[in-house]
Write a protein that binds this DNA or RNA. Structure first.
Lengths: 343, 343
DNA sequence: AGGAGCATCCAAAGCGCTTTGGGAGGAGGC
DNA sequence: GCCTCCTCCCAAAGCGCTTTGGATGCTCCT
């Protein structure tokens, strides 16, 4: 049997009230007393009973994730990674998950149910699209939430954590231009996803600033798997005037692209430069590529952890977190980028 | 404010005791009374407060998953799919998840913590290895659990849900042999995983029965991604006497293999036959392959749902489920299999 | 000296459910 | 007719925490 608050209080010769307050950081407790309490907690290994806390406070101490079931996002390699970060953080705080697989047409209902039932204190969504309707729904539902990514268009008055996709791909493109590349291709994520739109924008902007244009035939959108990276690259190489550099929205895509390049008898970094966005997937490290990959890096797992921290922090109202965060992806140069051929 | 038990009882002119008993299926309630109660529940939309139930019963109404963090299993395409099935079922019963990412060396500690803390009523593990030590630990911990897969070696006295991997690959191999194939290759999952060992066993057995041997140079083990499928196939094709048929442990592997075959100027189903195991991933349907794939099929999502059902059923002790289930994978013939060339 | 004002602490009332320990009333046995 | 035994229901006591609404001294001021 675990130690209970009552026993702890008796042990200390204090009331439950005081012990509880000491633990929850209320001011009306003498500093010395609080220290004594904390010491006793350490010694006895006391852990408050979550069920009792839930009942007494009305908080759920759990967070909900609505995971789109369509198009196999669940079996998206990137989703598990994000989830792992989220979970790791949640476990630390003894928070639970309510994972809600939900078809897009049921999403609104799922949100409502979650908000009404009170089974979660806050929820989180991802895979933002342009003008994503979910944000308005969530705002109207008065349940705290954080989105991973940002929508495009519409008011930007909601809590999010995103990486600066535009800047990342802008900077990557600028590097390529500086290296003398002109024909630059983009193998991107699905067209309706916000991050993909922004990355394309970054590329377009950089090209424009240096007086070039993004050739639309050099842009492909698809699910971000190896397979599609390969196909896209292959098609680029078949063009009369193939690109000398390629940007990939994920290392998975890059894997396929590299294969296509090798197959064509070309060398990565010499004949064709590659820069990929690296979500820091443990299974797909850019430094392990036959030619180590230049990347824009931002850890998906860290993002997951951060979202959890913010969500949980908000619920416990401990500490104060920025409502909106835009992480910068570092541009890390490795061997897959080099001067444009003939320069 | 949601309806509470007390209000419901008042409405019905009954005591809370009786209503509670009616809802929880206790026998000492008149059948008519029970019907009245159920009707009132439907009309008022009453839902028992989980926090209160947790406190009163001492049950957690949640299940734990210990997910290995190493080798990027979280970003394994198959994991999310299984999880989705599990989650969908859990949501139906208002159960929570406690997702525990855990490094292999911390796994035992994680199990102990989970079992001791009482934050979960039961847990589930997967990615079984041969002589998997986790089973003994779990048994000693006296916490209900179900494993997805089976260990190899050691007593088989624990609850599991597995597919009959040996039979699946035995039957697939038999089909290939009947079609005249002799040199049969296997692109398998990682060598230490139980399912991979069994699949290889199935292949070996079938070959042996028809008087052939499995050529060890035609067996590759790796993470099951597209990339490795490609590499393996490529190496097979470089052999002086390449295989005329290939078995793949996942459609992802098959995707890569098909690419390597096409690249070599060969035709799937004619020059080389392929059979893959299909976990029914929404993103990778065998019927969408350029040459539709012959597969051994068993839905991973369904398995997840089933594990959840059993776990939850056990906790609520509703209904009774078999302790051990071995699902048969159907062999579905499509166009990727054909007679061995020259036959 | 007599309050006012603060810093600390406590007893007790919930939170919404389950479960224990009866109790009333009718059926059945002798 | 009386007692026993079911059947069906109820009052009340928790489950382990948080929180309200005071108490109790002490210090400080006038």
């Amino acid at each position: 049997m675990p130690v209970k608050l009552k026993q702890l209080a008796e042990l200390l010769g204090l009331s439950q009230t005081t012990v509880s307050r000491a633990l929850n950081g209320y001011p009306e407790v003498n500093a010395k007393t609080r220290q004594r309490v904390l010491k006793a907690v350490r010694e006895t290994g006391y852990r408050p009973n979550r069920a009792a806390q839930r009942l007494a406070t009305g908080k759920a101490y759990s967070i909900g994730l609505v995971m789109p079931i369509a198009s196999g996002i669940g079996s998206d390699i990137h989703f598990g990674e994000f989830l792992a970060g989220l979970a790791e953080e949640a476990v630390k705080h003894d928070f639970h998950f309510v994972l809600n697989p939900s078809a897009p047409e049921d999403e609104e209902a799922t949100f409502r149910r979650l908000a009404a039932s009170g089974t979660v204190d806050a929820l989180f969504i991802a895979h933002m699209r342009a003008n994503d309707p979910r944000i308005a729904i969530l705002k109207s539902l008065s349940i705290p939430f954080v989105v991973h990514g940002r929508s495009i268009g519409g008011p930007r008055d909601y809590p999010f954590l995103d990486i600066d996709n535009t800047a990342a791909f802008y900077e990557a493109t600028r590097l390529l231009i500086q290296l003398g590349h002109r024909r630059i291709a983009l193998i991107n994520g699905q067209e309706h996803l916000a991050f993909a739109i922004r990355r394309k924008k970054g590329v377009t902007r950089a090209l424009k600033e240096w007086g070039h244009d993004l050739d639309e035939t050099l842009v492909h959108h698809s699910v971000m798997t190896d397979e599609y990276g390969y196909r896209s690259m292959q098609r680029f190489l078949e063009q009369p005037e193939p690109p000398t550099a390629v940007l990939c929205s994920s290392t998975a895509l890059a894997l396929g692209a590299v294969r296509a390049i090798n197959q064509a008898g070309l060398t990565v970094g010499t004949d064709i430069s590659i820069i990929a966005h690296d979500d820091v997937l443990p299974m797909l490290k850019p430094e392990n590529f036959s030619v180590p990959l230049t990347t824009t890096r931002s850890s998906l797992r860290a993002a997951g952890a951060r979202v959890a921290t913010r969500l949980i922090g908000g619920i416990l109202d401990r500490g104060t977190y920025p409502d909106q965060e835009l992480w910068h992806a570092e541009l890390i140069v490795r061997a897959s980028t080099g001067p444009a051929p003939g320069k």
